[in-house]
Computed example of a mutant assay.
Amino acid sequence: MAEQRIKVMIVDDSAVVRQVISQALMADAGIEVIGTAADPIFALQKMNAQWPDVLVVDIEMPRMDGITFLKKVMAERPTPVVVCSSLAEKGAQATFEALSAGAVSIITKPKVGLKNFLEDASNDIVQAVRSAARANMRAVRTTAAPATFSGFRPKLTADVMLSSANNAALVKTTEQLVAIGTSTGGTQALEIVLSKLPATALGIVVVQHMPEKFTAMFAERLNNLCQIEVREAKNGDRVMPGRALIAPGGRHMMLKRNGAQYVVEVVDGPLVNRHKPSVDVLFRSVAKFAGANALGIIMTGMGDDGARGMKEMHATGAHTIAQDEASCVVFGMPKEAIKLGAVDQVIALEQIPQAIVSFGK
C-alpha cells in the first residue's frame, strides 16, 4: 500500500516564501501542498474545506499574527505547526511564544537572501514537515500549558543558598551531574522539567537541537521561569549545583574534568547525526569523564541522536532514563535508545523532575 501523503498548508505573507517552500515540499513524493495563504484569515477559510496534516506558519502577518492563529488552531483542532521565523531578536522572542502555544518545530529564515536560503534549506524544510506530521499532539497540548511564576524565590540570595540541601548533600552533588538530550518538542518539555527543580538541584548539561542565536534567548527565557540558573554555555563554564548549561546552537558541547570539578568545552566541528550541537557528542563525553556519577536523560525528539551516546553512558555505570511514548511529542530519540538497550527506566515527562532530585540524594 502506498504511503499516505502528508497534506500541508503554507501561511506566509511573502509570495516568495510560499512559492519556494511549496516547490521544496512538492519535490517530496510523500508530501502534498493542499494550499497556501497570505494571512491566517484566508488560511482558515481554506482549512474549513480541507484541513491539513501540517501547517507551515510565519509569525508576523497582516490581519492576524501567527501566534494568535496558532492558539486558535490549537483550541479548535490541534494540528502540528512548523514556525517560519526571522533571526531578529523580536522574531526569536515571538518564536518562543509560538513554541509555548504548541508549535513543534522552527525553520529560521534570514531577512536578506531569503530565496537562496530557502532553496539551500529545502531538505531541512522537508524533514521538519515530516517530523511534525509524526507529532503526538496530545503531548504538545499538555506541554504547552503556560508556566507559572508563583512560589519562585529570587536566585543568588541568602534565602536560596540556605534552602533545603544541607552541607553534606552539597558535597555529594559536586561529583554528580545530569545530562539531557532532546529535540522536537523539547523546548516545552525542558520548561516543564527545569521549572520544577529546586535551586539546589544537581548541575545539568543540556543539548536541545536548536538553531544558532536561538539558544541564548531560550536559556534566558528558562532562567526567568526557573529557580535554578539557566544559561547558554560558554567554553570553560563549570557544571555546578543550581545551574543548567544549554549547548549553544551551531556548536558542540562536551563535558571535561578539571581536577575535582566538571566543566564544559564548547567547540565547532562537523555535524553529528545531522546536528550541531549533537546529543551523542555530549553523552559520549559524559560517559568518558563522569561515568557512574552521571544521570542521563533522553527526551522527545526525531531521529536517533543520543541513542549510541546513552549506550556508552549506560556501559560506564551511569543511570539512564528515557521519556515515555505517551508524553513525547515525537518518540524517535527515546525509542532508539530503548532499542539499543541503553535505558534503565522509561518514565513520563512529569516524573523526570523527581527522578533528578532523587538521583542527587
Rank of each mutant, 00 (worst) to 15 (best):
A145D: 05
G269R: 10
L225N: 09
P78S: 06
L245D: 09
A326Y: 05
K234A: 14
L295I: 15
T36I: 08
G249S: 07
F331W: 13
I228G: 00
D39H: 04
E312D: 12
I180W: 04
D12C: 03
A101D: 11
S105W: 00
S163D: 08
N167T: 12
M310V: 09
A43T: 14
G259P: 00
L282E: 01
I59F: 04
L194N: 12
M161Y: 14
V112M: 07
R221C: 14
M254P: 00
V329Q: 10
S85D: 06
Q176A: 14
I338F: 15
S278C: 15
L190P: 04
M240W: 08
L245Y: 13
D280G: 15
A318F: 01
K115A: 13
S86N: 07
L194T: 09
L70R: 03
I125A: 08
G242N: 05
I125E: 05
V286K: 02
R130H: 06
A244W: 06
K46A: 07
A260E: 12
A326E: 13
L25H: 08
D58C: 05
V82K: 01
R5G: 08
M302W: 03
V207D: 10
H275G: 15
A38K: 03
D120F: 10
V83I: 14
M74N: 09
F283C: 07
S358I: 11
E312S: 06
A260P: 03
V267P: 05
P62M: 02
L255K: 04
V126R: 05
E97K: 14
T143K: 03
E3L: 12
I228W: 01
G151K: 05
M64H: 06
V281A: 09
N167A: 11
I6W: 00
L194W: 06
M313I: 01
G296A: 12
N273A: 15
I67M: 05
P241T: 10
G303H: 03
Q93F: 08
I59R: 01
V129K: 02
D53M: 08
K90N: 13
A326R: 09
I297W: 01
D65P: 03
V82G: 04
Y262K: 02
D237E: 07
N48S: 07
R77H: 14
V281P: 00
T68G: 08
D53K: 00
